[in-house]
Nucleic acid binder design. Structure first.
Length: 585
RNA sequence: GGACCCGUAGCUCAGCUGGAUAGAGCACUUGGCUUCGAACCAAGGGGUCGGGGGUUCGAAUCCCUCCGGGUCUACCA
């Protein structure tokens, strides 16, 4: 029996074909196929309801004609039943489930199946994008983690992904940094912890300008010299961004985060005049209060709220560089789609950016790529207020990650005291970092995130440790049986799933493609998290209900087959999310 | 003032272009390890989906309005 990777897509196609056979208006008919409540089946199609209503037809009669017209291959795959006012419920046959599970025998196979989702699409994904000379803190972790997961997911689903770290490496902070570097530098502190020292210099310089107007002038002079290309200041600027990049790289390595490019704001300096000129000649930009701005008359808000693309003093701001960045990504990278990850507070800016770019490109005959501002909620303290406004410094990411691993180590030691310490440290690292990462991914990104140690390191419910634990249990079965989960001989002769637990598990496996589709089209990793959590839950129930290593060779093989595929999909999914999986914990 | 986000069980959250009796976890009650890992599983109680209107075969989901919380709103990013 041939079964395709994406059964939902196959059923959707079959229904559209059947609609043609049954003489329905194919262009107007959307099957509205979705996963169903297990009480009703595996998938359901609701489309006949709206179709029949619009034509004043009896929906049940339409559903019956449609089901009768389904191709033979579909009838082999599943049973179709009409329920209620005209729902069509599809239940995959055990034979079809077996065929699907058997077919998905490697990561490569899953990837090949998923590739149809975004094949041929080139995405530029802009994420992390920290400011030079500022330490990464808890507020940065969400964008980093979500961005990395989105890149991996899109690439897995066939897209060509270009990862760009749009670092804030140019701007007014460099006046203070350079002045501070020249007058207040503690060389030994810089050697031991460069970012700590740069941050101290910035704060000290900032305080000095407030205390003494002469210092303020000196700071401004340093900035002017830098922008004029003064060799000494330019060299210092290079030094500072190199030190900063080194510190960032350390964290990126720890979190397994990668970039293809790190084109910071400074990269676009020489590309700004073209932006001003084109927007002016296109009639989009105008002078207002001395600044160059763009209004959008059709927009309820941006008709009066300007998009300031050049400041009244002639200097650039982030609208200027972001416009240049849009152009570069379109022309140089030839992006079909651009995704920028920042917190939701910048929503206005990116809406204005998208509107402006769309009009600009339309006027100049350029193709406007699909643009998505992948926004996410702020990190809040336990008091519900923005974490940055709490008294004292925000929690540094380095310290956060170290503490997560330390806390996980205590737990690992408690649960598995017999393992050697080196292995417990390694496990604690995977569990602790995974817990932080997963906590950021599992919640819908549009909501604010309340940071709490207890929540991040809670190892119960929909969390990293629960999923990692499920992986180790599957691995343990194979280890105890002396089998290799990737060896087809271990699962040869498997029969179709029979018991309720086997069937439920096989069905959950077969809806993996749906979770990929949802996750990558909406760029919301929590859909995949929810799926993996449900899969791990089905496995845990199965594991408690059925013994895998039994004497009957057919039953044993089919249960081992299910276990092998749970392992494959669980690990594939977790790796896409950026988690490291374990053999023991 | 205006725009956007959010409001679902005591707490933390899912709920996919409107679908069938709104779901998980934590906490609480109860049961399950001499048998593949109990960081687990099974069962139970707990809801006027912020309030009120509307749209329709059907609304947590869409529209209007009000309440409550948050963010943004001319030269920081």
């Amino acid at each position: 029996m041939h079964v395709s990777f994406d059964l939902a897509a196959a059923l959707d196609t079959a229904l559209r074909t059947a609609a043609g056979t049954a003489g329905m208006d194919v262009t107007a008919f959307n099957p509205e196929l979705r996963t169903a409540d297990p009480r009703h089946g595996d998938f359901q199609a609701n489309g006949v309801l709206s179709y029949a209503k619009a034509r004043k037809l009896n929906p049940r009669a339409v559903a019956e004609q449609l089901v009768a017209a389904l191709p033979a291959s579909t009838q082999e795959l599943c049973t179709a039943a009409i329920a209620g006012p005209g729902f069509i419920n599809f239940t995959l046959t055990p034979a079809a489930l077996l065929a699907w599970v058997q077919a998905q025998n490697s990561v490569e196979h899953l990837k090949a199946g998923a590739a149809s989702l975004h094949h041929g699409q080139r995405y530029v994904v802009d994420f992390s994008s920290p400011n030079t000379a500022k330490q990464l803190h808890v507020g940065h972790v969400r964008g980093m983690v979500i961005g990395e997961a989105i890149c991996r997911l899109l690439a897995f689903c066939g897209a060509e992904v270009i990862r760009d770290n749009h670092i804030g490496d140019w701007g007014t902070q460099f006046g203070k940094l350079i002045w501070g570097y020249k007058h207040l530098l503690d060389a030994s502190a810089l050697a031991s912890d460069p970012l700590e020292e740069l941050e101290r210099l910035y704060k000290a310089a900032d305080a000095a300008t407030k205390a003494d107007p002469a210092t303020l002038d000196a700071v401004r002079a340093e900035l002017v010299k830098l922008q004029a290309g003064d060799p000494e200041n330019l060299a210092l600027w290079h030094t500072i961004i190199a030190l900063s990049a080194g510190a960032f790289t350390e964290i990126y390595r720890l979190l397994d985060i990668h970039f293809d490019h790190q084109l910071g704001e400074s990269f676009y300096n020489d590309k700004l005049p073209q932006v001003y000129a084109e927007l002016a000649s296109a009639g989009l930009a105008e002078e207002s209060q001395g600044a160059l701005v763009v209004f959008h008359p059709e927009h309820p808000r941006f008709k009066t709220q300007p998009f300031i693309i050049r400041k009244s003093d002639g200097a650039a701001n982030y609208a200027s560089t972001d416009l240049a960045t849009m152009l570069y990504r379109t022309e140089h990278f030839r992006a079909d789609a651009i995704a920028v990850l920042t917190d939701a507070r910048q929503a206005d800016h990116f809406e204005q950016l998208a509107l402006t770019t769309q009009k600009w490109f339309a006027k100049t005959g350029r193709q406007f790529p699909r643009f998505t501002h992948v926004s996410f909620g702020s990190i809040l303290g336990e008091d519900g207020k923005a974490i940055k406004t709490r008294s004292g410094d925000p929690i540094k990411l380095k310290a956060l990650l170290a503490e997560a691993a330390d806390r996980a180590f205590i737990l690992v030691t408690e649960k598995a005291p017999d393992l050697p310490e080196a292995e417990r440290r390694d496990i604690a690292s995977a569990v602790g970092l995974g817990a932080i990462r997963y906590a950021d991914l599992a919640q819908n990104r549009s909501s604010d995130y309340v940071f709490s140690w207890d929540k991040i390191l809670s190892f119960e419910g929909n969390t990293a440790p629960y999923l990692l634990y499920a992986v180790t249990r599957v691995r343990s079965i194979f280890r105890k049986a002396g089998l290799d989960p990737t060896d087809p001989t271990a699962t040869a002769g498997a029969t179709a799933p029979e018991t309720p637990a086997e069937l439920a598990l096989a069905r959950k496996l077969a809806t993996f493609p749906v979770s990929l589709q949802l996750t990558t089209t909406q760029l919301r990793p929590h859909f995949l998290c929810t799926y993996l959590y449900e899969l791990a839950g089905e496995f845990s129930s199965f594991y408690a209900a059925e013994k895998v290593i039994v004497d009957d060779p057919a039953i044993r093989a089919r249960r081992l087959l299910l276990c092998a595929r749970v392992l494959l999909i669980l690990e594939t999914g977790l790796h896409l999310l950026g988690l490291r999986t374990l053999a023991r914990m």
